[in-house]
């Protein structure tokens, strides 16, 4: 769209706006459609804060999402190019985007059901390839959009719509899985730790290679109705009281960490990234043929 001289340029349109992060959001979509007390809005705020701190122009970002409440964080609210894909396949689409547009920052924000559940295999292999993607997995411990069904990350013993007596399965530790699969940067934070979360997001965006941040976020409506935690503050209190820094957690046994949320940086490596290697092989081969 071309703007005439008399019209205000887009950069200045939000000068009078009340919030300093509004310039990163599609303001016509606000207020968000998230439930009262939902953690997705906090994640959006932390992400906008991270982009603001990096002074990253939104034109250089491609957001890829799947299906679910958490996939609504970048689409429609964040003002950047967005690819809203099928359930569980956000990472597969993001891999394609990154290979064809290696200069763009490709950032995936999706939920635990989408990334670790239905798209679990894509997650393992994207981490194994160490492709230069940034993945923010919003873990609310259930499939919130469809009514609070049990997900692979639901804590053992929790009540959900599909485990009305209690959940007998142990949860999937997605961050540990990604660290073991070979990602360059893995950390875990909660929406209560919003300042370190924004810092970790900032670091993950700038880090080369596969970077993964698991964000424990509250779902006071779909998950909270079954466990009798009806407000966002109940969950934030839980995160504050049960979280433990990874430096302290390393000294504890596995039994002592059962009900704890381990937060902090799990792993950081400087392994070579996939797209660079792929382009290198391609240019070598085309030179060889000539």
């Amino acid at each position: 769209m071309k703007l005439s001289q008399t019209e205000t340029p887009p950069e200045d349109c939000c000068e009078d706006s009340n919030h300093r992060l509004h310039k990163y959001l599609r303001q016509e979509t606000l207020p968000t459609t998230f439930c009262v007390g939902c953690g997705c809005g906090t994640v959006l705020g932390a992400f906008a804060q991270a982009v603001d701190e990096l002074s990253l122009p939104p034109e250089e970002i491609v957001m890829v999402t799947g299906i679910g409440c958490s996939s609504w964080i970048p689409s429609p609210y964040f003002k950047a190019d967005t690819l809203h894909t099928t359930h569980g396949r956000a990472l597969a689409f993001a891999t394609g985007v990154k290979v064809m547009l290696p200069r763009m920052k490709v950032i995936v924000i999706a939920g635990d059901g989408d990334i670790a559940g239905i798209g679990g295999n894509h997650l393992i292999h994207a981490a194994r390839r160490n492709i230069d993607l940034t993945v923010f997995m919003v873990n609310n411990w259930n499939y919130g959009m469809t009514g609070g069904q049990m997900s692979p990350t639901t804590p053992q013993g929790a009540l959900t719509t599909t485990s009305p007596y209690h959940n007998v399965e142990p949860p999937l530790k997605a961050a540990e899985l990604v660290a073991a699969a070979g990602a360059n940067y893995v950390s875990r934070w909660t929406t209560y730790h919003v300042f370190p979360l924004a810092e970790a997001m900032q670091y993950a965006i700038s880090k080369k290679g596969f970077s993964f941040v698991e964000i424990i976020a509250q779902c006071p409506v779909s998950y909270g109705k079954m466990v009798n935690m009806r407000s966002g503050s109940d969950f934030l209190n839980l995160y504050r009281d049960t979280s433990i820094r990874i430096e302290q957690a390393r000294e504890l046994s596995e039994e002592e960490l059962v009900d704890k949320i381990v937060v902090g940086k799990l792993v950081e490596r400087d392994a070579e990234e996939y797209v660079t290697k792929l382009y290198q092989v391609n240019s070598e081969q085309s030179a060889h043929k000539e």
Partner: peptide
Amino acid sequence: RFCELLCPEFAIT
């Protein structure tokens, strides 16, 4: 600015 970042609706600044 804890309230500003915690607010899920960008309502407080």
